[in-house]
């Protein structure tokens, strides 16, 4: 379960690539990348949890909706998450996830970038040689 930034993809914004042996793990890596962009995750605590469910939809749409929901939680409920558990049913095209985190604390959290949106640029989920990969470019 890993992600790496792609600094040359979008000068004004932030791009990353995530991968995992499992589809759920890859979704979790994408979520962790978004957290890492918004806050130093080491300063976050996993104090409250939230459940998410999406679908039926194709994998691209599930990932787009899941990541967008994390951005909405940041703006609407001031919530940032550091732990994720994601199950994706690839046949049924559904996603269930739980995320643990806490409300923004400007004294304690080392905040970074405010993410505006997930873009469609290079966006997509694919399986390469048994590994699940996604490329995501965020508008900052």
């Amino acid at each position: 379960m890993t992600f790496r930034y792609l600094p040359d993809v979008a000068l004004a914004d932030i791009a990353f690539e995530a991968e995992s042996d499992t589809i759920g793990g890859m979704f979790e890596s994408c979520a962790l990348a978004i957290t890492d962009i918004m806050v130093n995750p080491l300063t976050l605590r996993a104090r409250s949890s939230r459940e998410f469910a999406f679908g039926p939809a194709d994998l691209d749409r599930l990932l787009y909706d899941f990541l967008t929901e994390l951005i909405i939680a940041k703006d609407v409920d001031s919530l940032l998450f550091k732990e994720f558990s994601v199950q994706v049913d690839t046949k049924g095209g559904t996603l269930k996830a739980s995320a643990k985190g806490e409300p923004i604390d400007r004294e304690r959290h080392e905040l970074r970038n405010d993410v505006k949106a997930v873009t469609m640029h290079m966006f997509g989920v694919k399986n390469v040689g048994g590994k699940w990969k996604a490329t995501v470019v965020l508008d900052i």
């Binding site: 600094p7 040359d8 979008a10 000068l11 004004a12 914004d13 932030i14 970038n113 900052i140």
Partner: peptide
Amino acid sequence: GRTMSRTA
């Protein structure tokens, strides 16, 4: 307009 990435 930017000429350098945020990371750079």
